[in-house]
């Protein structure tokens, strides 16, 4: 158990619902779920493997105090942010955000599944776009392909060769971005300071350790 996880488990004892309400974004909505299942039927990734627990099941598991099962589940990471569940929910739960919130909290506690590809994408994307203030698409793609090591990256690159060549031909992929060229914000220093302060304030508000 990570330190952060131990500390939170101790703080909330057996009240996992309260923990989610206070720690996960939009978690205070969980108790409003009436278990109708419209969210599950509306999810585009529902029929794919990896979808262990649909949202309404996750909500009931939270209320039943199944802390470990919920926080280690791969389910929340299946969200494509399509907002279908969100607009269809008869009780207006912002389900997309709750799923994101639970996933984020699980990640902060070190409980998210290891090598979860969408978690890796989230990390990579945010670090990429906040580095200079704007996304460097080439470096983003490189980090994604090479996440499982050098050889796997080369193999993935070759698989995707035609897609990349098509984009280069259409002038929609600037290979020079690999060398750090491309689009950037001018006030990068201001952005870094602003984000450091935001992380500090968020940790304070949620009574958590600051994570870089």
């Amino acid at each position: 158990m990570s330190n952060a996880n131990q500390a939170m488990a101790a703080r909330y004892k057996n009240n996992f619902l309260k923990e989610i309400e206070e720690q996960a974004e939009m978690g205070e909505w969980v108790k409003m779920c009436m278990q109708c299942g419209v969210c599950s039927g509306s999810c585009p990734t529902h029929f794919h493997p990896g979808w262990e627990h649909p949202p309404q099941e996750i909500f009931m598991m939270i209320r039943a105090g199944k802390r470990e099962e919920v926080l280690t589940s791969p389910s929340m990471w299946m969200c494509t942010s399509c907002y279908n569940c969100y607009v269809r929910c008869p009780r207006k739960l912002p389900i997309t955000h709750i799923m994101h919130g639970i996933a984020e909290y699980a990640y902060r506690l070190g409980l998210a599944p290891k090598m979860q590809p969408t978690l890796h994408l989230s990390q990579t994307f945010w670090r990429n776009c906040t580095k200079t203030g704007r996304v460097n698409e080439v470096r983003l793609t490189q980090s994604l392909y090479f996440k499982d090591g050098f050889m796997a990256g080369i193999k993935k690159g070759l698989e995707m060769k035609d897609v990349a060549l098509g984009l280069i031909k259409a002038k929609r992929l600037n290979i020079l971005e690999a060398l750090g060229f491309g689009h950037k914000c001018k006030d990068q220093q201001g952005i870094q300071k602003m984000l450091a302060k935001a992380r500090e304030l968020e940790a304070k508000r949620k009574n958590r350790q600051v994570t870089a």
Partner: peptide, 21 residues
């Protein structure tokens, strides 16, 4: 000097406040 919105996918790494900021 506009910056990236963070897109939906950054939810896990960004958290709440940094994304809104």
């Amino acid at each position: 000097d506009w910056n990236c919105c963070g897109a939906s996918i950054s939810y896990a790494e960004a958290g709440e406040l940094p994304r809104h900021v």
